[in-house]
């Protein structure tokens, strides 16, 4: 049981972090807070992916002695999985881009309604 918890707890922490963000996205009434929630959500996903890559006892995915002429046998087990890192580099960029567009939209909203509180905006729409 203890092993089980030790083995999985990091996933659970990521999930809790995600859900904090998810909750903020849905229930916060301020648009900026929603965006912050969105960021937390996305960041948690990124950390989750990164933790898939982890291998106990392995090092960074940069080859040591790469230029030595190849006498050293390169073993996959001694380097952590590079693929999730690559994916997350892309995902980070996507996230930043989304954030940028979201903020631009928020600015536009603010220009139109002079407020960022959802309730007030809804009142003004009606």
């Amino acid at each position: 049981m203890f092993d089980f918890i030790v083995g999985k707890y990091n996933y659970w922490i990521h999930i809790i972090l995600m859900m904090i963000g998810f909750y903020a996205m849905m229930s916060k009434r301020n648009l900026i807070k929603k965006i912050i929630g969105m960021n937390i959500f996305q960041t948690a996903i990124i950390i989750f992916f990164i933790s898939i890559a982890a291998k106990r006892g392995a090092t960074l995915p940069i080859l040591e002695h790469a230029h030595d002429g190849g006498e050293h046998a390169i073993e996959a087990i001694s380097y952590i999985n590079p693929l999730p890192h690559v994916l997350m580099l892309t995902a980070i960029v996507v996230m930043v881009a989304t954030l940028g567009v979201a903020l631009a939209v928020v600015i536009l909203v603010y220009r139109k309604y002079d407020t960022l509180e959802e309730a007030e905006i809804l009142k003004k729409i009606k």
Binding site: G7, N10, G57
Partner: peptide, 8 residues
């Protein structure tokens, strides 16, 4: 059902 974190 996930493998433990850090499992190679």
């Amino acid at each position: 059902d996930m493998p433990d974190c850090g499992n190679p």
